[in-house]
Amino acid sequence: MSLPKTLAEDVARNLVMVAQLIDEEPEKAYGYSRVALRLASRVAAVREAAGFAAYANQKYSEALAEFRAAKRMTGSVEFWPVMADCERGMGRPERALAMAGEPEVQKLDKAGQVEMRLVAAGARRDMGQLDAAIVTLQSPELASSSVQPWTARLRYAYADALLAAGREDEAREWFAKAVEADKDGTTNASDRLAEMDGIEFVDAADESDTDADAGFIQEPSDSEESDDSEDDEDGDKA
Rank of each mutant, 00 (worst) to 15 (best):
V77M: 05
Q106T: 15
R172Q: 02
T136R: 09
A65S: 15
A98F: 11
A44C: 08
W174R: 01
E207S: 12
R155S: 05
W174S: 06
D160W: 10
A40L: 06
R153Q: 09
A49N: 10
D234R: 05
E200R: 08
G112V: 04
M196K: 07
E78S: 11
G215F: 01
S41C: 13
S229T: 08
R42M: 10
A194W: 01
K237I: 12
K177I: 01
S33W: 10
D10A: 12
A161I: 15
A44R: 06
E62I: 12
R117E: 00
E173T: 11
E170D: 07
V105Q: 11
R155W: 05
A36V: 01
R88I: 08
K237G: 15
K177M: 05
D228F: 01
Y32P: 10
K107V: 15
M90L: 13
K107A: 09
A69N: 06
C86M: 14
D231A: 03
K59P: 14
S229Y: 07
M1K: 02
S145T: 05
A8G: 08
G128V: 03
D23R: 06
P149R: 05
P149W: 05
G101R: 10
S146N: 00
E66A: 13
E78M: 12
T186A: 07
E102L: 12
A159P: 05
K110L: 06
E207Q: 15
R192I: 02
F67M: 14
D206F: 11
G128R: 02
Q106E: 12
Q106C: 15
F67C: 14
E180C: 02
S139I: 03
R72G: 01
D160K: 09
P81V: 01
D197V: 10
A204P: 08
A120R: 00
M116H: 03
D236I: 09
A157L: 07
S145L: 04
T136F: 09
G235F: 11
D191C: 02
N188R: 12
G198S: 08
Y55E: 11
S146A: 05
M73N: 03
M99F: 09
D131V: 05
T186Y: 06
Y60I: 06
A176T: 01
D211M: 12
E233M: 01
A63M: 10
